[in-house]
């Protein structure tokens, strides 16, 4: 095979991969503007399904519930992730360190179905014994926070590992008590990691369907659960509209954050070059 043929082969292969990745999304977006009731037949462009979406109380309630759970579980996950990562990083020897370390990472490798099932069994027996908790928002939140804490721990811990431990020593040397070292130096330096842990756990919770299905009760359906159950009854084009809205929101957020960090990196590079020249 000569080099031009190879080049063309490479290009078409790349095109194929991109098509495979993005064609379904484009189709979905396109059909969300389709007037037809049938998902597979194009009639003409309209915003009919967006209007339908706005009046779909169930779906909107599901979205709100999902956002609420995602936000709260991300907060809880980052909070506990921060402290478990800090404990694992800082204290090299304490009773139960090995246990905490493996417990913190178990949910990462355990299939969601197993985690969901075991949580459900536990919650059912607790409820039988104490009459609490009723399955609903709280129990879903519990499951998501459990999973999220594991992820947040990993993210924060890796940042702690690459952080210069001399900075904490310098703070102590300059008169910081241990808790001041944490609040004045460690925490500000961990901010970017906490933010990315938050975004990660937020999305994890937002698109989870397995854990939610196990842990939710009547009247508490998250957005992915509603989409999933409707898809089984036959696709409804207003789901396409919802998906399109989600895609747009996510793209804007990702694009903005990428742009921001790129500009930060470039500014930093320029500053450093300038400082060296002086």
């Amino acid at each position: 095979m000569n080099s031009t043929a190879l080049k063309w082969f490479g290009r078409s292969w790349m095109l194929l991969v991109y098509a495979f990745l993005f064609l379904p999304i484009f189709t979905l977006v396109a059909y969300s503007f389709n007037d037809s009731q049938l998902v597979t037949v194009w009639s003409h462009a309209s915003l009919r399904w967006y209007k339908a979406l706005m009046h779909d109380r169930d779906l909107i309630a599901a979205v709100m519930l999902s956002l609420k759970i995602a936000f709260l579980s991300a907060l809880v996950s980052v909070f506990f992730g921060l402290f478990s990562a800090f404990a694992l990083h800082r204290y090299r020897r304490f009773t139960g360190r090995g246990l905490l370390s493996s417990l913190a990472s178990t949910p990462l490798v355990m299939p969601d179905v197993i985690v969901g099932l075991s949580l459900l069994l536990m919650l059912v027996s607790v409820q039988q014994a104490l009459g609490y908790p009723e399955r609903g928002l709280f129990t879903i939140l519990l499951g998501h926070a459990l999973l999220g804490t594991a992820y947040a721990t990993v993210v924060v811990r890796s940042r702690l590992t690459e952080m210069d431990s001399k900075l904490e020593e310098a703070a102590m040397d300059l008169g910081c008590r241990p808790w001041q070292v944490f609040t004045l130096v460690t925490l500000p330096l961990l901010m970017p990691a906490l933010l990315s842990a938050f975004l990660l756990t937020f999305t994890l919770s937002f698109d989870d369907v397995v854990l939610s299905s196990f842990l939710s009760g009547p009247g508490y359906s998250t957005m992915p659960m509603v989409i999933f159950s409707r898809a089984r009854l036959g696709l409804n084009p207003s789901i396409n509209a919802l998906a399109t809205v989600t895609i747009v929101v996510v793209s804007v957020v990702v694009f903005a954050s990428t742009l921001y960090s790129l500009r930060q990196a470039r500014q930093r590079k320029r500053d450093m070059a300038l400082a060296q020249r002086e």
């Binding site: 001399k166 040397d173 300059l174």
Partner: peptide, 15 residues
């Protein structure tokens, strides 16, 4: 943090 001693670090450790 209670010693009247301060240190300048090799890699500076500036915040």
């Amino acid at each position: 943090y209670q010693r009247p001693i301060n240190m300048m670090f090799q890699s500076y450790a500036l915040f």
